[in-house]
């Protein structure tokens, strides 16, 4: 039975990685029409380096991702502190209000943003995408910091205060250092959420100003070229590294040995 289970698991993982492996492999394949047999080359990465639109889209993606990460984490950490510290009226409602950005299909949120930003004159473009990305990342940040705070004991700040720390000093001396891993995890998560975001970026992009996923999409609509594979392969590698760091920091799927 166990062998059967493992075989099934292996098959599932094969299914999950098959297209990815193929795509990455073809990034190194000489044929511009994706025909096999396989000939190793770095040609397409060179072509990629000269592809203006793809490069500027990559730059935009990174810029927005960094900005999103910082803004969402800052804003989300503050909110998380309020939501997880003291209980007050309306707290559950506020927690529920964090769900719409994640639960509502991004198609609806994205088009809604398009409509609203048009109407209020905010318009489209990088600033609009930033606003959208941060909004989508905030719930995740609140969740991650909140989870981190569960392992934080309230009596540590009390102990600090009993020794002369004002509440503010206690926060900076005790709580913040202990929250550091969660904050870093939130930063990475927000970065990944922004970097991978397609739908909302799609609706808020303008011709000439877009992010990498949007640019890949329009390139695909025009026709396939292997430099898309090249940039996609790089993109995948970056995302994978981020996830691995994040998993390391938060012991995903493993044991929690904090006390």
């Amino acid at each position: 039975m166990i062998a059967l289970g493992r075989a099934f698991l292996a098959a599932t993982i094969f299914f999950l990685y098959l297209p990815i492996v193929v795509m990455v492999a073809l990034a190194f394949n000489a044929s511009p029409l994706y025909t096999l047999p396989f000939q190793l080359t770095f040609h397409w990465f060179v072509v990629l380096a000269n592809n203006g639109p793809l490069l500027s889209a990559t730059y935009n993606s990174l810029l927005i991702a960094v900005a999103t990460s910082i803004l969402a984490t800052a804003v989300g950490t503050l909110a998380s502190l309020a939501l997880n510290r003291r209980s007050f009226r309306g707290q559950s409602l506020l927690k529920v209000l964090l769900l719409p950005p994640i639960a509502i299909p991004w198609l609806i949120t994205g088009t809604a943003m398009l409509v609203f930003f048009f109407w209020t004159g905010i318009g489209r473009g990088l600033h609009a995408m930033l606003i959208g990305h941060v909004a989508l990342a905030i719930p995740y940040v609140v969740l991650i910091i909140g989870t981190g705070m569960q392992t934080l004991r309230a009596d540590l700040e009390e102990a600090a205060m009993s020794m002369g720390s004002t509440p503010v000093h206690a926060f900076f001396a005790v709580t913040l250092p202990l929250l550091a891993p969660s904050i870093i995890a939130a930063l990475l998560f927000a970065f990944a959420v922004s970097l991978d975001q397609f739908v909302v970026s799609y609706f808020l992009a303008t011709p000439g100003v877009s992010t990498l996923p949007v640019e890949i999409y329009t390139s695909i609509r025009k026709g396939f070229t292997p430099e898309i594979n090249a940039i996609s392969a790089i993109f995948l590698a970056v995302s994978a590294i981020l996830v691995l760091i994040f998993a390391q920091l938060s012991n995903l799927g493993g044991n929690r040995d904090r006390h």
Binding site: R153, D155, L156, E158, A159, A160, M161, S162, M163, G164, S165, T166, P167, V174, P177, L178
Partner: peptide, 19 residues
């Protein structure tokens, strides 16, 4: 307030700063 009262407290869980 607590932080000006000059007391010494030993908590049931010790509350030592782990970091």
């Amino acid at each position: 307030p607590l932080w000006r009262r000059k007391v010494g407290m030993v908590f049931q869980s010790y509350a030592l700063f782990p970091h």
